[in-house]
C-alpha cells in the first residue's frame, strides 16, 4: 500500500478499519462461504419469489400475473387441505417427539449397564438415510404383508387388519408414527445433554426438603430444561413443516390427498404437472413459518 493511499484512508476512519489486516483476513476467510450462499441460496430465493409471480409452466417463460397464484391457491380446496394436513402433521409429531423425548432422556440419564451402547442404538433412526428407512416402513405397512399387523394380531391387540396406508385417517397416523420414529433421537439426545448440566446438588437439596420425584421434575428439571426444549421444538417445527421424504415415499400425499403437505404438493405441481409458477408459490408458503421460527429463536437466544 502506498503512503499516499494510507494517508487518504486514515482520513476516513471507517475505511481504515476495513483495511486493517485483521479485517482483511476476516473478509478473505468468509468470502468463499458468502459467495456460495449468495449464488445458491439468496439468489434462488429471490428467483422463487419472481417465478411465483408468473404463470410459468415447464418449457415456457410465462408472463407476470401479480399475486394470482397465491390468491388462486387460497381458494383451492386441495391447497386448503394441504395447509390443514401440514399443521396436523407438524403439531402432532412435535408434541409426540417432545413428550417421548423427555421420557427417553430421563431414562437414559440413569446409571445402567451398556449405557453408551444403548444410547448409540437409539440414535440409529436419525443417522440412517431417511429415504431407505422409510422404505422399510412402507414394507412394514404393506396392505397384504404388513408385519405391524402381524405382530398386533399375534398379540391380540387388534382383531382385524389396520389399513395403514390405504385409509385417509390411518395414512396420517402412519406418517406421524414414522416422523416421530425418525425425529425422536434428536429430541432425546438434546434433552439428555440439557439434563446432564443440571447440578446434582439441586436434587439433593430437594430430597432433604422432602420433595418427591414428581415435584422434583416439575420444579427443578422442567424449568431448567426450558432453554433446550425451546430450541429443539423450534428447530423441529420448521424441519417437520417443510418435510418431504417421509410423505413422498410412504403415501405420496395420498390416499385422496389425505397426507399431502406443502413440500410434496409443491413437488407434484411444479415438477410432475409442470406448473412451475404455482409450485413456487406453494413452496413460498413455508416462508412465513420459517420467519416466525427465526424470530422466536433469535429472540430466545438473545435473552439467554
Amino acid at each position: 500500500m502506498s503512503i499516499a493511499r494510507a494517508e487518504r484512508l486514515a482520513a476516513r476512519p471507517w475505511a481504515a478499519r476495513l483495511v486493517k489486516p485483521e479485517a482483511l483476513t476476516g473478509y478473505g476467510l468468509i468470502s468463499p462461504a458468502v459467495f456460495l450462499m449468495l449464488v445458491l441460496l439468496a439468489y434462488p430465493f429471490v428467483l422463487a419469489v419472481s417465478i411465483s409471480l408468473t404463470d410459468r409452466v415447464l418449457g415456457e417463460p410465462g408472463k407476470f400475473v401479480w399475486l394470482e397464484n397465491f390468491l388462486k391457491l387460497l381458494q383451492d380446496s386441495l391447497f386448503r387441505q394441504t395447509v390443514w394436513n401440514s399443521f396436523v402433521y407438524t403439531i402432532s409429531t412435535v408434541f409426540l417427539k417432545l413428550v417421548l423425548g423427555i421420557i427417553l432422556a430421563l431414562l437414559l440419564n440413569q446409571e445402567m449397564p451398556y449405557r453408551n451402547l444403548v444410547r448409540g442404538a437409539l440414535l440409529l433412526p436419525w443417522i440412517v438415510p431417511t429415504s431407505l428407512s422409510v422404505l422399510t416402513w412402507l414394507w412394514m405397512f404393506d396392505s397384504l404383508f404388513s408385519v405391524v399387523n402381524y405382530i398386533l394380531l399375534g398379540l391380540g391387540l387388534i382383531s382385524k387388519k389396520i389399513p395403514w396406508l390405504g385409509d385417509p385417517f390411518w395414512a396420517m397416523v402412519s406418517v406421524i408414527i414414522v416422523n416421530t420414529w425418525r425425529g425422536l433421537p434428536f429430541f432425546a439426545v438434546s434433552i439428555l445433554a440439557g439434563l446432564m448440566t443440571i447440578p446434582r446438588e439441586l436434587y439433593e437439596a430437594a430430597e432433604t426438603d422432602g420433595a418427591r420425584a414428581p415435584r422434583q421434575f416439575w420444579h427443578i428439571t422442567l424449568p431448567l430444561l426450558q432453554p433446550v426444549i425451546a430450541v429443539v421444538v423450534l428447530f423441529s417445527t420448521i424441519w417437520t413443516f417443510a418435510d418431504f421424504q417421509i410423505v413422498y415415499i410412504l403415501t405420496h400425499g395420498g390416499p385422496i390427498n389425505a397426507t399431502q403437505i406443502f413440500a410434496t404438493m409443491a413437488y407434484d405441481v411444479a415438477l410432475v404437472a409442470g406448473r412451475i409458477g404455482e409450485g413456487s408459490a406453494i413452496s413460498l408458503f413455508l416462508f412465513p413459518a420459517l420467519l416466525v421460527v427465526i424470530i422466536l429463536l433469535l429472540r430466545y437466544l438473545r435473552r439467554e
Partner: peptide
C-alpha cells in the same frame, strides 16, 4: 477476528442453517 459486519454474518449463518431445502428447490433447479 473482529471486523465490521462479523456479527451480521454470524447471524446470517444461523438463519441459513434453518432454511429448508424444500423452500428453494424449484428455482435452484433453474
Amino acid at each position: 477476528l473482529r471486523f465490521p459486519g462479523a456479527q451480521v454474518f454470524g447471524l446470517a449463518t444461523f438463519v441459513t442453517y434453518l432454511v429448508p431445502t424444500t423452500l428453494i428447490f424449484i428455482p435452484l433447479a433453474s
